[in-house]
């Protein structure tokens, strides 16, 4: 009896310790109830729809202004991070837009300007620190090479920001979600692959194999996984 009691106490202690550890580990919120990222409270409720949304030909005061994403997020085309525009950029336009000068949000904006303080914007699309993502590469491909509209190209990962007020994350931005596009658009082919030097990238744990006809490349049989790994984890992990 005594022994049983001791064992049960030990087991209980163990389970408490384990569940306590699991509860302590910070788990990122992947999705909220409405299938979007967490609601981020910004210092100023920036209306993306008013700036980037489509024009309303009937009433120009109601619709958006179709401003290009990269007018404000200017670093996206030339660096790894898209960046937050400096306050100067906001003021540059708003000092000469008298019609909205007295709106509470604009007054708030000018308060920061007069205090010579940057607006403490919060990050919405915050990738984990171990991810290497390059905006420039994606803009170069979609906007410069394939001439797709900026809003479409940005929207692949950021969702339909022109309809949002404060932006929210609407895609998972997980590894599987990234690889989903990359596997579809840069398949491993008989000729090699799309990146330089005939190096294609695969994301499973084995190189995809050609079928008997030598055409279609498929993910290998997962029952027989070999320990070779994807050919370059460091492409995205840092």
């Amino acid at each position: 009896m005594h022994r049983l009691l001791r064992l049960s106490i030990l087991l209980m202690g163990l389970s408490v310790a384990v569940s306590g550890y699991a509860a302590d580990a910070p788990q990122p919120t992947l999705t909220t109830e409405d299938d979007l990222g967490p609601q981020v409270v910004q210092p100023i409720e920036f209306p993306h729809d008013r700036h980037a949304g489509l024009r309303n030909p009937g009433d120009p005061l109601k619709g958006g202004m179709e401003i290009d994403c990269m007018y404000c997020h200017t670093y996206a085309r030339r660096s790894a991070v898209a960046g937050i525009p400096p306050l100067q950029k906001c003021i540059g336009c708003h000092q000469s837009i008298e019609t909205v000068r007295n709106k509470p949000r604009i007054q708030e904006l000018f308060k920061y300007w007069d205090a010579k303080k940057p607006v403490p914007w919060k990050k919405v699309h915050d990738l984990p620190d171990f991810v290497r993502f390059n905006h420039e590469r994606h803009i170069k491909r979609f906007v410069e090479q394939q001439n797709r509209p900026t809003q479409e190209a940005c929207g692949y990962c950021h969702g339909d920001v022109k309809q949002m007020t404060v932006a929210r994350r609407s895609k998972a931005l997980s590894m599987g979600w990234c690889a989903n596009c990359h596997q579809k658009d840069h398949p491993v082919t008989a000729a090699g692959g799309t990146p330089v030097g005939n190096q294609a990238y695969w994301y499973g744990f084995q190189k995809p194999v050609a079928d008997a006809a030598g055409g279609e490349y498929k993910a290998p049989d997962t029952n027989n996984i070999k320990a070779q790994g994807p050919n370059d984890c460091w492409q995205c992990h840092k």
């Binding site: 984990p128 171990f130 190096q199 990238y201 744990f205 320990a227 070779q228 790994g229 994807p230 050919n231 370059d232 984890c233 460091w234 492409q235 992990h237």
Partner: peptide, 19 residues
């Protein structure tokens, strides 16, 4: 490596994936 956390990259590096 039991978790395949260290792999060889295409350009001859021995990669270590922390997570």
């Amino acid at each position: 490596c039991p978790a395949a956390a260290t792999n060889h990259t295409a350009d001859g590096l021995n990669s270590q994936i922390y997570n």
